[in-house]
């Protein structure tokens, strides 16, 4: 049908004597699929989204509020629960800024300079993405455990506790969330090149001033985006943290670990209440992320226009 009507339209445009014939149905674009294919593909996607994403999310909140607001507050407002929330916030508050510094430094080095081993550094930054978090946790145990770690003797003699303590949890979290900020910045900084920095330097600005007034503002939205993702992962990390934490209630339990413990103890309502907090965090992150993406896309487009 379409392959007949498309030339017909061309013809009617070309023949200026006869009035252009209106097509009964606009022909389908070459890149469009037939309605049947479209409906079934979209339908499949919607069903999958509902079954695997939206339904569980609804379930979490339903379970959390099964015993009403009071039940929810009671479940969360338990000393161990409060401790878990505090610990999670503390871990995020240390590891996100740490990765912010590492990520910016790494992206800056990779995007703006040429040096030996650059490809290796990029691979290294991606390592946490490819390694199972459990392995990451185990590595820290092997290195820093006071009983059988490589540096165990030294740590023991200096009274330093890393594994089964907050430092270990922070280390594991930093490891797992390392790529988020660097990965977000590298492509953008590479695209931007060094001309803006050269312009600032040629106008007499110092290196630091150039970095603060030109380099950072040029990547601020990408940076925020990376921080957001990094934070979400830092708060939600389970595997690596589980290995190094030791699950000491009220001391080394983060929110995800606390959820698991409550669940294993058949305290479903409490478990889902804490889980719903994590889910809420995810929703807020997604919302902010979408907002940034709108803004960030503009910035990127502006970058290309220059």
């Amino acid at each position: 049908m379409s392959d007949v009507s498309a030339p017909a339209r061309l013809m009617s445009d070309a023949e200026t004597d006869t009035p252009a014939r209106r097509l009964r149905k606009p022909p389908r674009l070459p890149t469009e699929e037939s309605p049947l294919v479209r409906v079934s593909l979209i339908g499949l996607a919607v069903v999958l989204l509902l079954a695997f994403l939206l339904l569980p999310l609804v379930a979490v909140f339903t379970e959390a509020f099964r015993q009403g607001i009071d039940g929810f507050v009671e479940a969360v407002n338990d000393p161990d629960g409060i401790a878990a929330i505090k610990l999670t916030l503390l871990v995020a508050a240390i590891s996100v800024p740490a990765n912010l510094v590492f990520g910016v430094a790494a992206a800056w080095a990779i995007a703006k300079y040429e040096f030996r081993g650059k490809a290796f550094l990029i691979t290294l930054i991606d390592l946490p993405f490819s390694v199972s978090p459990v392995v990451a946790g185990l590595v820290y145990v092997i290195l820093y455990s006071t009983s059988h770690g490589v540096f165990g003797g030294y740590l023991q003699s200096h009274g330093l506790q890393i594994i089964f303590a907050v430092p270990g949890i922070v280390l594991a979290t930093i490891f797992v969330t390392f790529p988020f900020i660097a990965r977000e910045l590298i492509p953008l900084m590479e695209e931007q090149g060094t001309t803006d920095e050269e312009a600032a330097l040629s106008l007499g600005a110092t290196g630091l001033r150039t970095f603060l007034t030109v380099t950072l503002p040029n990547v601020k939205w990408a940076l925020l985006y990376g921080v957001l993702l990094c934070n979400a992962r830092a708060m939600g990390e389970f595997g690596a943290v589980s290995v190094v934490s030791g699950h000491i209630r009220g001391l080394t339990n983060t929110m995800p670990l606390h959820v698991e413990i409550l669940y294993n103890e058949y305290q479903f309502a409490a478990s889902f209440a804490v889980a719903s907090l994590l889910a809420a965090l995810a929703l807020v992150t997604l919302g902010l992320k979408s907002l940034l993406e709108l803004r960030y896309a503009d910035e990127l487009a502006a970058g290309r226009r220059h």
Binding site: T195, D196, A199, L203, A205, T213, N218, G303, H306
Partner: peptide, 25 residues
């Protein structure tokens, strides 16, 4: 005074701030 091929204007700054950059630095 160096003028770059693609101008390298600081796009997050106004025209006035761009011009003032070297003086403020």
């Amino acid at each position: 005074g160096f003028v770059f091929q693609h101008y390298a204007l600081f796009k997050h700054m106004t025209v006035a701030d761009n011009i003032a950059y070297g003086l403020r630095a």
